[in-house]
Design a protein around this nucleic acid. Structure first.
Lengths: 171, 171
DNA sequence: GTCTATAATTTGATAGAC
DNA sequence: GTCTATCAAATTATAGAC
């Protein structure tokens, strides 16, 4: 995994978060990175393998950051919220696995599996840290719904208001 | 607006809910309805005008159903939840304006405006029925997040669990 | 590793017959 | 209103030179 491959994944991540799996092309990424589309295919043979790799990297990085926050003594829910806030603060885009999951109906199986795994691993991580199954679902739903509305309304402040439900109901 | 035009809108609605704005083509819809793609263009000159019309019809129908439930003495939040449950029960697909809003970054302006209006009009309707601005955002976020997770995990039961946060925090 | 060139398919959209 | 036929552009992907 060299510099170009990582730049391609970065570009793909930004474009998927903005427009979903069908919202970008190899030529878009090539232009973003400054190469030709054939070079993108050299690093990632097919579009679905690229998207699956991006979704996997996103999940691993996200969960690692949350784990690090918790290990440093942070609150579980606050750590998850911080993960979503990083997305909003960076470019106002959606959670990568949230956009993918919302349009799961047309995703190639590899991509759909990776997106689904973000949610399953996330729920498992919350349960491992003491949350009930139901409470974990509630936390994840509030965070995904809050960022979706912030994106749809183009209002980062809406995320803060919407996630307030979690403060009122410690679980 | 004749039978064919309505059948086209029905097909477009189902396909957008499943795969978003970029997840369908005029030829897909033509095959669904049993005509040729040129006939789809006769009823809806461009893709963005078709999607905008579908989003607008979705919003008007959705809000009308919620209003009817409330007029019949139903609880506001329960009426909203019932609207989302109809989507899940019919085909397990996402909220139409939820998928569109999640990938708002690549939507044509007309479509993006119609999707955004679903959220703004929805929030306004909740406020008109006594909810605070913040509480309205919370209700909408929980519902969109809960259906997104139910779709991503292909688990309708997850919707019921996730929306439980709303019961614990009457606002 | 990156390029040029290109194949094969799909896309949104239009012209014109019926 | 629906069709056939078609266009121009874009898409994923591959072959082969450098």
């Amino acid at each position: 995994m060299n510099e170009t491959a990582q730049a391609i994944m970065d570009a793909a991540e930004a474009r998927i978060r903005s427009g979903g799996y069908m919202g970008f092309s190899f030529r878009d990424l090539a232009a973003d990175v400054g190469v030709k589309s054939a070079s993108v295919h050299y690093h990632f043979p097919t579009k679905e393998l690229l998207a699956a790799a991006v979704a996997r990297r996103y999940r691993e990085r996200f969960l690692a950051e949350v784990d690090r926050d918790i290990a440093a003594g942070g609150d579980l829910v606050a750590a998850w919220k911080a993960g979503f806030l990083r997305a909003i603060d960076s470019d106002g885009g959606m959670c990568l696995c949230g956009v993918l999951g919302a349009a799961a109906g047309i995703l190639p199986h590899v991509v759909r599996s990776e997106a689904r795994e973000f949610f399953e691993a996330g729920l498992a991580q919350m349960r491992a840290n003491g949350l009930s199954s139901v409470r974990a679902l509630q936390v994840l739903a509030v965070l995904e719904g809050a960022i979706l509305i912030a994106v749809a309304l183009n209002s980062p402040a809406a995320f803060e208001d919407a996630t307030g439900v979690l403060d009122a109901t410690p679980g």
